[in-house]
Structures are given as structure tokens and as C-alpha cells.
Design a protein around this nucleic acid. Structure first.
Lengths: 215, 215
DNA sequence: TAAATTTGTTAGTCAATGCTAACTATTTAA
DNA sequence: TTAAATAGTTAGCATTGACTAACAAATTTA
């Protein structure tokens, strides 16, 4: 029954709450590209609905109910992304905008069917966990590739960033989830990493390596 | 760029324009379950956008641009219904409400992919034609079963009504598109029809028979 | 610690889309 | 052919979710 606006706010707040437990108004405004007063009034509304704890000039805290509600939206988003990639043949760089719209569809049956057809996947195409129907999210403890040492051989499991440009960059390097990567060398000066995978050798920047989650 | 409201109005107007070329305000209000003044103001807006011709107290006429725009929405709706039935295993009585939401998704790629995966279907699961990408709609000249004479053997091709209750009724009688139906007898008094199909004999009311389109 | 900066709030406005009440035009029927 | 009924319109208002301008609190920094 929540509007799309409410759902979008909640999703952003939830995602920020993962980083720091306490969320600030400005961050929400930036993420949603909306003015501060807009956030302020919506935050009051969400608090009135019991989804947030709000006190003037204090950082926001998401309630259990808010967390639960947000998890269900994220579940729909990530199931959709997985469905688009697995069943409809889209690339992982194409699915975000479509999922952003589909996540607001009100139809448990629709998403349950996706879930079934996919065999109850645990991760979306970018390696992010899909919350289960109870709103529980498996916490996956991956390391950043940038924290690995020369000689280590690891598998690319997830991405810490999923912008189109980054995904297209990874496509151009044929870096996909599941690829086995061996660290050859780390440049002391700029932390550039030379890595081997799939029979090729590439030099990856520290920025890129910090977005590649491995185990 | 059109809002969901605009799209819903346009779809209703288009559908009414198929029946009678000139559409009246009250019909729109009833179809959308909205007040007359709401329709009046939206109609002016649509006219301002060049989708309708509007003159005070005159019946409305949809423009070519309006027809085109509506056809694309109906294309998305019907492709979605077909996809849900063919690729996701839904029953024909379950898909309307989901398609009603999905038809507003803005992503040509998404619907093109459905279209491809379905092999460019010409009809939705209820036998209604799917407009092509140019907005052209194949006009299918079917007869009503109620117009058939005893002894005639025809195939169920489409439905003139697609409410959940009607579809569930057809399910209960195992009446599906493609079924070969033979007219056994027509009761003069109430036009009830006795028909044979799939090895069973059923008596169908005149109302039901007028909603069954055959050839 | 006082000034400057950043962050958050309030007040007032706007556009989209809905509504009711009151009115007018058109159509139907007595 | 006039009265009643129906259909369409206008005016004014409510709600949602956005905005700017102005201000207040909290934090940073000189």
C-alpha cells in the first residue's frame, strides 16, 4: 500500500543504515536527488508510519518494521535482476533500471514465481544477497581484492559497486563472477595490481580492486 | 513520459472508441471508477497534448496520435499477459492485475525481449490481438458461438469478456482457446446451447455463448 | 571559544490528480 | 413541447510529493 516514493526513500535509508547505523538527512537527499526539505517532510511521514525513529536534529534510525519493509523491496529488486539475467538474457549492466521499476509491482505471486523459476537464488547477478521472504539477509563476508597479497588465488564473488560504467568496464576485461583470479604483483607506489585470470594478465587500479569482492 | 494516470485514461478511451467511434465522459468515469469532474479535467489535458479532440458538450474523438499511444500501452499489456502465461506458468485468470501494473514499465528492451522470447505472438492468452510495434492491430473477424446453428463445428478462438469470474467459470468447464466445439441443440425459449467438446456435453447460457468467439 | 560552515527545519508554494457542490446543456419522455 | 432526467462543466478544495527562501541548530575550524 506504500507509494513508490515511500518505497524509494525506505530503500535508500535501509542501504545507508547498513553502512552506518545512524542515517542523516543529507545523505538521503543526495541519493534520491531531492531537496533537503523534501526529505525532512518524508522522514516525518515515515516516522509517523512507524518505519523510522525521528527526533529533531538527531540522526535517523530505521525501526525493525522499516528494515523488514525495505528488505522486501530489495528482495523484489534483486530477484528481478536475477530473473532478467537468467531467464531473459539481459546483461548485468542492463538490469538495474528495469528492476528499479519492477520492484514496485504489487503482486507476491509474481515474485514468488520468479523465485521458484530461479530455484530460490541466494544472490543477484552482482553477488548481492537476496533477502528471503522473512526479510532475513545472509551476510556474506567477502574480502576486497585490494586486500589480497601477491600469490593469492581467489574467486570473484560480488561487487561493491554496480554502476553501468563499472559493469561495462568489467565486461571489457571479461571479469565476471566466478572467475578465478591470481594476484601476481602489487605496485607499492599506487597499489595497482597485476592479476592473472582466464589465461590473461591485466593491471587493475586500486579503485577497481577495492570494488571486487572475493573469497 | 506520460503518467500512469494518463496511460490509464488513454487505454479506456481507446477501448471505448473501438465500440463506438465517439466516446462519452460518463463511460470513462465508470470504467476508471472516478468522478465526472476528474474525467473532465483529464480530458482537457489529453486534448491539450493532442491525444484527443475535445469540444464542450460534444462527444470525444481520439486522434491518430492518441490511438497510436494507446496501442503501445495495450501492446505492453497483452505481451505481458502472454509472457506470464507462456513463460511463467500463470493461469489466464491470474494475469490481468499483474499486466495492469507492468504495462506502465518504461523499457522498450524489456517488452522487446518478451516479444522475442514468445516468438512474436499475434494474440494474448484471451485471444485478443497484440498490436505490433507500429501500433497496428490485426482485426480478427470471429463469430459469437451464440450465432452458430446446431450441427456446426467451430473452434474457440477468443473471448469477448475476460473477467476473473468468467475465466474461472470457463476453467471449471475446461473450456480453453483451441477447443473444438460442436453445437448440438439450441433451446428456442432461452437460447441455451447444448454443446459437445473434448468428449463432454455441456449446456451453456446465451450470455456465455455470446462471449465465446469462434471460427 | 567565537566565527564559519554544514546540517536540519519551517513556512509557504506548486503541479498532478483526485474529490464534492452547484450549475448548465442536452436528451428523453410525459 | 415542456418537464424530468441525464450528461457535462465549473469552481473550489484536499492530498501527495516536490520546490525555494529563510532560519536555527550542530559541528568544525581558525
Amino acid at each position: 500500500m506504500n507509494s513508490q516514493s515511500i518505497e524509494n526513500y525506505l530503500k535508500v535509508i535501509f542501504n545507508q543504515a547498513i553502512v552506518t547505523d545512524e542515517v542523516n538527512t543529507t545523505g538521503i537527499a543526495q541519493a534520491l536527488e531531492v531537496s533537503l526539505p523534501s526529505v525532512n517532510s518524508m522522514v516525518k511521514k515515515l516516522a509517523g508510519m512507524g518505519l523510522l525513529e525521528y527526533e529533531k536534529y538527531k540522526p535517523l534510525k530505521i525501526t525493525e518494521k522499516g528494515r523488514q519493509t525495505a528488505a522486501m523491496i530489495i528482495r523484489k529488486h534483486r530477484l528481478t535482476e536475477m530473473y532478467l539475467v537468467e531467464k531473459m538474457g539481459f546483461g548485468w549492466e542492463e538490469v538495474h533500471d528495469i528492476a528499479e521499476q519492477l520492484e514496485h509491482i504489487q503482486s507476491p505471486e509474481f515474485f514468488d514465481r520468479m523465485d521458484e523459476l530461479l530455484g530460490h537464488p541466494q544472490r543477484d547477478p552482482h553477488g548481492s544477497p537476496i533477502p528471503n521472504k522473512q526479510g532475513h539477509i545472509a551476510i556474506l563476508e567477502y574480502r576486497m581484492l585490494s586486500d589480497c597479497k601477491p600469490g593469492e588465488k581467489v574467486e570473484l564473488k560480488a561487487l561493491a559497486h554496480t554502476s553501468d560504467e563499472f559493469l561495462r568496464y568489467l565486461n571489457s576485461k571479461e571479469l565476471a563472477l566466478g572467475v578465478q583470479v591470481q594476484v601476481v604483483e602489487v605496485e607499492v607506489y599506487d597499489k595497482n595490481m597485476t592479476v592473472d585470470y582466464e589465461g590473461r594478465r591485466e593491471v587493475l587500479s586500486a579503485l577497481v580492486c577495492s570494488k571486487l569482492l572475493v573469497s
